[in-house]
Design a protein around this nucleic acid. Sequence first.
DNA 1: AGACTGTATGCTGTAGGCAGTTGACCAAAA
DNA 2: TTTTGGTCAACTGCCTACAGCATACAGTCT
Lengths: 249, 249
Amino acid sequence: MPRSDLAGKAATPRIARPVPLRESVFEALLELIINGSLHPGQHLAESELAEMLGVSRQPIREALQLLSGEGWVDLHPGHGAFVHAPTAEEADQLLAVRSLLETEAATLAARNRTDEGVARLRALCARGLAAIEADEIDNAVAINSELHATVMELSGNTVLAELAAQVSRRVRWYHTPVARQRGRASWEEHTALIDAIAAGDADRAGEIMKDHTEQTRRLYLSQLGEEEPPQPLPNNRRRKRRAPAPFGG
Amino acid sequence: MPRSDLAGKAATPRIARPVPLRESVFEALLELIINGSLHPGQHLAESELAEMLGVSRQPIREALQLLSGEGWVDLHPGHGAFVHAPTAEEADQLLAVRSLLETEAATLAARNRTDEGVARLRALCARGLAAIEADEIDNAVAINSELHATVMELSGNTVLAELAAQVSRRVRWYHTPVARQRGRASWEEHTALIDAIAAGDADRAGEIMKDHTEQTRRLYLSQLGEEEPPQPLPNNRRRKRRAPAPFGG
DNA sequence: AGACTGTATGCTGTAGGCAGTTGACCAAAA
DNA sequence: TTTTGGTCAACTGCCTACAGCATACAGTCT
């Protein structure tokens, strides 16, 4: 039946079909939000975004719904979309949840470990340390996410991994500035974590991951006092004439 | 300045503005999916749904995006929406995650407990037991969700609560048949849980909740062998002439 | 002078419509 | 018989258009 099992070739990355506009818009808006071009609390008028990005309102609306699903914007029926204004409390809760999910993942990963998986972790860890040595912070941050994602994958719980991915994306909003601070220490903890996983010591792996994530959480909280990161600006400044009320008091 | 402070009347429940169509559609489709009218794997043609529900395609699209965000349907660009086909493995993972989140919530709730909160829990528990006595299963199930939601609320972590709510909704897909089985035992565990929370014993509260949720998880798994609940039907049966391939192999 | 009411304007929610693409069906060729 | 090419229907993606509502502004009355 399979005359030439092309289907089994696996590594075919399923040719690049034109990415749906909504996703491009999603990426574009996300970038604008993260880099601060769109201020927290700012009202996002569909027509305006549509004109700005050169598309119609439809893909804009769909992108806004996606963004809303991930907590980047708040959708208020009849009033439109507003850039989410994160609070310190929310950040703390987010980091707490992240800690919880990551800890569980580490525990499970230690139980389900495979030689191949451990090898991948070690490779990532080596690359991460190298990046730190070379002072390539951005690179190190990227490798860090990859490492945590790999632990998630090794946990074997897809649902857990997806949820954690969602949380991690939101954490990114705050995480970036923090990450620069605890470079080396973080990677030494990673090494210990991988050792625990390799040894199949679930409890220790969980313990280490818990300390590891709680550490960044604490660091973030201590940083809060110094500088409010995503500054909740007094908002509007860009409306042509009229600024919409914060409505529904 | 406020000559008659109507604004201060507080108890004005902010008049019922017409719910956006997308949300009504969302609810309608969700109901159809949960009660099985729409089979797992079934292709959802926008035009068809639009005609069926008597609205245009726009709100349908938006509702589908929402459903996709919560894992009820899978969106495949260029091919449309398909009812998500849950597997036994996914159900298990979902229940595991739920257990994790609920356990954490119980622990936190015990730490942040308030007399008012404990009172609400006890009231709910009493109502739940009454419902069980009266054999009002559906009612008991509803109160059960409310009780768990309240524990979440008492945890004080909004992010955790939202995530758990999302997971719980998905669990509902499987949960319904299971719930009927372990009526009384479940509510006795609830009583113990509330006692632990009231006593501020975080560890014990967490422990009880863990056992409680793992219990339902086990029960579900054991039920799986007997009858595949959301039957992954061979799918199509409704296309007028042509059945779309499961595409993209 | 202050407050209230009528009017204008911008925005969202929804509908309808068109073009491009996908996949199925069918016929012809190897 | 198997394969190859063509044809067609259906569906998604996207755009444009319209109706209703909310807010801001201005005029008017007390």
